[in-house]
Lab assay of single mutants.
Amino acid sequence: EKTLKIVADSEEEAEALAKELAEKYNLEVTIERNPEEEGKYVITIKIKP
C-alpha cells in the first residue's frame, strides 16, 4: 500500500479534489485539517497494490 498526501488551501478545494480522485480513479481518499499550517487541509490518498 502506498500513501500520497496533498495539501489544499481550503476545505472546498480539498473536497472537490478528493471527490474527483475517488470517483475517477477509485481510490480511498480522506481529508483532515493540517496541524502544521492553519487554514490548510491534507488530502490523503491510499493506493492499494
Rank of each mutant, 00 (worst) to 15 (best):
E15D: 05
A14D: 00
R33W: 05
L21T: 01
A8H: 01
E38F: 12
P49S: 12
N26V: 03
I45A: 08
E36L: 11
D9G: 10
L17E: 01
E32L: 10
E28M: 11
P35I: 09
E13N: 04
E1M: 14
E28I: 10
E23F: 14
A16C: 11
E38V: 08
A14Y: 01
K19T: 06
D9T: 06
T30R: 06
E12W: 09
K48A: 09
R33F: 08
K40D: 02
K2M: 12
A8E: 01
S10G: 03
K2D: 08
E20S: 11
E13R: 05
E13Y: 06
N34H: 15
K5V: 13
I45P: 01
I43S: 00
E20N: 11
A14L: 02
Y41R: 02
Y41H: 02
V42F: 13
E28S: 10
A18C: 05
E1N: 12
K48Y: 13
A14N: 00
K40M: 04
A18E: 02
V7T: 10
K24R: 10
K24M: 09
I47D: 03
P35D: 09
A8F: 13
I47F: 15
A22K: 08
G39E: 04
K24Y: 06
E23A: 14
L27M: 11
K48W: 11
K46E: 04
K46F: 15
A22F: 11
K24H: 05
P35M: 11
R33S: 08
P49Y: 15
Y41K: 01
E28W: 08
R33P: 11
I43L: 13
K24N: 06
L21H: 02
K24P: 01
T44G: 01
V29S: 04
K2T: 14
E37V: 10
K19Q: 07
V42N: 03
L21R: 00
E23S: 14
I6F: 15
I45E: 01
K5Q: 10
N26T: 04
A16W: 12
L17R: 04
E38N: 13
P35N: 09
K48M: 08
V29D: 00
A8M: 14
S10H: 02
K46T: 11
K48Q: 10
V29W: 15
A16T: 08
Y25H: 03
E1F: 05
I6C: 05
A16I: 08
I43P: 00
L17C: 07
E23I: 12
D9E: 10
A16L: 10
I47G: 04
T44V: 13
E28R: 06
E20M: 15
V29Q: 00
A16E: 06
R33D: 04
K5M: 13
E36K: 12
T44I: 13
L21W: 08
G39D: 04
G39W: 07
I45W: 05
A16S: 07
K40A: 05
I47P: 04
E15F: 15
K48D: 07
K40C: 05
E23H: 12
P49G: 12
L4A: 03
E20I: 14
K40N: 04
E28P: 14
E1I: 15
E37S: 09
T3G: 04
K24E: 02
Y41M: 03
E37G: 09
E38R: 08
A14G: 02
L4G: 03
E32Y: 14
E11I: 13
L17D: 00
E15T: 13
E36M: 11
Y41G: 01
N34D: 14
I43N: 00
K40I: 06
V42P: 01
V42T: 07
K46H: 12
V29E: 00
T3F: 12
P35S: 10
R33L: 08
T44A: 03
E12M: 07
A18Q: 04
A8S: 05
K2F: 06
I47Q: 05
V29I: 08
N34V: 12
I43F: 03
E20C: 15
E28L: 08
T3I: 11
A14P: 00
E36R: 10
K2L: 14
N26M: 06
E13G: 03
E13Q: 10
I31G: 00
E15K: 14
E12I: 06
A8I: 11
T30L: 08
V7R: 15
E32I: 06
E23V: 09
K46C: 04
I45Y: 04
E36T: 14
E38G: 14
I31N: 00
T30D: 04
E15M: 15
E11V: 12
P49W: 15
E15I: 14
E38A: 12
I47T: 06
D9K: 06
E11T: 05
E23T: 12
T30W: 14
V7I: 12
A18F: 05
E15P: 00
I45T: 02
I43H: 00
E36N: 14
E37P: 06
E32R: 07
V42E: 03
I6G: 01
E37M: 12
D9W: 13
T3V: 13
K40W: 05
R33V: 09
E38H: 14
A8R: 08
V29L: 04
E32V: 06
I6Y: 15
K5I: 13
L4S: 03
L4P: 02
S10P: 00
V7S: 11
L27E: 03
I43V: 11
E13D: 05
T44P: 00
P35V: 08
I45G: 04
L17S: 01
L21V: 03
P35T: 09
Y41D: 00
A22P: 00
N26H: 08
L4W: 15
A22V: 13
L27F: 09
E13H: 09
E20L: 14
G39R: 04
I47S: 06
I6N: 01
R33N: 07
V7Q: 12
K19S: 07
E20R: 15
L4D: 02
I45F: 05
E38M: 10
E1R: 12
I6E: 01
L17K: 05
E13K: 07
T30E: 06
E32Q: 08
D9M: 05
E13I: 09
E38W: 11
K19A: 08
Y25Q: 02
I6M: 06
V42K: 02
E23Y: 15
L27Q: 05
N26W: 08
K19V: 05
T30A: 06
E11Q: 12
E36I: 09
Y25E: 02
S10N: 07
L17H: 02
L21K: 00
V7F: 15
K2H: 13
E28C: 13
K5P: 03
E28H: 12
E12Q: 09
E36F: 11
E1Y: 04
E15N: 14
N34L: 14
E13C: 12
Y25S: 02
N34M: 13
Y41P: 01
Y41T: 02
E12T: 06
E13W: 07
E1W: 05
E12P: 04
I47N: 04
Y25N: 02
V7C: 15
E13A: 10
E12G: 06
K48T: 11
T30F: 12
E11C: 08
K46W: 13
L4C: 14
K19G: 03
A14I: 02
Y25A: 02
G39F: 06
I45H: 01
I47K: 04
L21E: 00
E20A: 13
A22I: 11
T44L: 11
S10K: 02
S10W: 01
E13M: 09
K48F: 11
A18Y: 06
E38P: 15
A22H: 09
A18S: 04
K19L: 07
E23G: 06
S10A: 01
K5D: 02
L17N: 01
V29C: 12
E11N: 05
K24C: 14
P49V: 13
G39P: 03
T44E: 03
K19I: 05
L17W: 15
Y41Q: 01
D9L: 05
T3C: 13
E11K: 14
E15G: 05
E20D: 06
I43G: 00
E12C: 09
V42D: 03
K2R: 10
T44H: 06
E11F: 14
N34G: 09
E1K: 08
P35L: 11
V42Y: 09
A16M: 09
I6T: 01
I31V: 11
I31W: 15
V29F: 14
E11D: 03
K2Y: 04
I6W: 15
G39M: 04
E23N: 12
I6D: 00
Y25C: 08
K40F: 04
E37F: 13
A18H: 02
K5L: 10
K19Y: 09
K24Q: 05
D9S: 10
N34C: 14
E20Q: 12
E15V: 14
A14F: 01
A18N: 01
D9R: 06
K24F: 07
E38D: 10
Y25G: 03
T44K: 06
K40H: 06
I45C: 14
I6R: 03
K2S: 11
T3E: 06
E13V: 07
L21F: 11
I47C: 13
T3M: 07
A14S: 02
A16H: 07
S10R: 02
P35Q: 09
E12K: 08
Y41I: 04
E32N: 07
E13P: 00
L27K: 03
A18I: 07
T30Q: 06
E13T: 06
Y25V: 01
E11S: 08
V42S: 03
E12N: 05
K40S: 09
A16K: 12
K48P: 13
T30N: 06
E36H: 10
P49Q: 12
D9V: 04
K24A: 07
K5C: 11
A16R: 11
E23D: 06
A22N: 06
E12F: 07
K19P: 00
K19H: 06
T3R: 05
G39A: 03
K46P: 04
A8K: 08
Y25I: 01
E32P: 00
N34S: 14
I43C: 03
N34I: 11
K46D: 03
E11W: 14
V42R: 03
E12Y: 07
P49N: 13
T44Y: 15
E12L: 06
S10M: 01
I45R: 00
A18R: 07
N34F: 09
D9I: 04
I31L: 04
Y25W: 08
A14K: 01
E36Y: 13
I31F: 10
K48C: 10
E32T: 12
K5R: 12
E28N: 10
A18D: 00
E11Y: 15
K46N: 07
E12A: 09
K2P: 06
E15Y: 15
K48S: 10
